[in-house]
Amino acid sequence: MEAPVERAPSKPVNSLSPVGDWTIKIIFFIYSALCIFPILLLVMVSLSNESDVIVHGYKFIPTKIDLSAYKFVFSDWESIARAYGVSAFVTVVGTALSLIVMALYAYPISRPDFPQRKFFTFFVFFTMLFNGGLVPWYLIYVRFLHLKDSIWSLILPLVMSAFFVLIIRTFFSTTIPAAIIESAKIDGAGEMRIFFRIVLPLSTPVLATVALFSTLNYWNDWFLSLVFITTEKNYSLQYVMYKTLTNIQYLTQHSDAIAHIGGATKFPSETVRMAMAVVGIGPIIFAYPFFQKYFVKGLTVGAVKG
């Protein structure tokens, strides 16, 4: 399946009048500018001089470029590197785990000959309809699994998504020919072997889509950190950004960094906030072209296959 935009949009003979074409162009230019503007503004503020910001507010064009916010942020690079590490670990391990666990669950319930198929499908489907709420859920993780302040509390809750399990199941049952599975069985292959050698390779499109969504969910999660994480070494990148936005103290408590910029009283809190955001968003923007390509492909698969 090709990404939508990679095909000619319409037949040339049937294309839009130049006036219509220009109208659409202008609308999109305005909208795209509005989308991108806040991000650029953030970058510009992070490059501004602190006292300029305090006197004139956030300006799109800084009067002069000042890198002291970045100097400050990177003087404490260990904690940022650490947050990146936590986020990367959670994302990679979480996505891999999630993919394998969901595919393993989806396969049996996609097999029409499995007698308990209905029960196990309902078992996963029901979690979409009803839940126990925050309080018992929190207590289970903290008191029963003892996962408070553990990196696993950032992974486990997002492993099983009923919606994705059902999507994978639908893909398995609609695109993998039963005949292939039958003939493999006749050749004496076990279920595990069939699953890993035949089913998974044939399902890369749906697995890639789910993996991308899963990556996004893990990378962008901050809620789990908010409720479970207490010590700094387990802070994820999103959580560090959250803390910086609401509570600049997270940065001031790193006294080395303060000393680095010449004493506590010269702390550029406004620009540092924005610099922290840029440091947090930066890599995503760089990975975006790659990401977007596969994402669009994946969504296309999802939309067509249901």
């Binding site: 669950y105 996963v124 009803f130 839940n131 126990g132 709420g133 018992p136 029963f144 492993v159 099983m160």
Partner: peptide
């Protein structure tokens, strides 16, 4: 594995 996770993450809280 999936069953256990659902049980702990979704069904036990329902009892709560």
């Amino acid at each position: 594995p999936g069953f256990l996770i659902l049980l702990v993450n979704n069904y036990l809280p329902m009892a709560g």
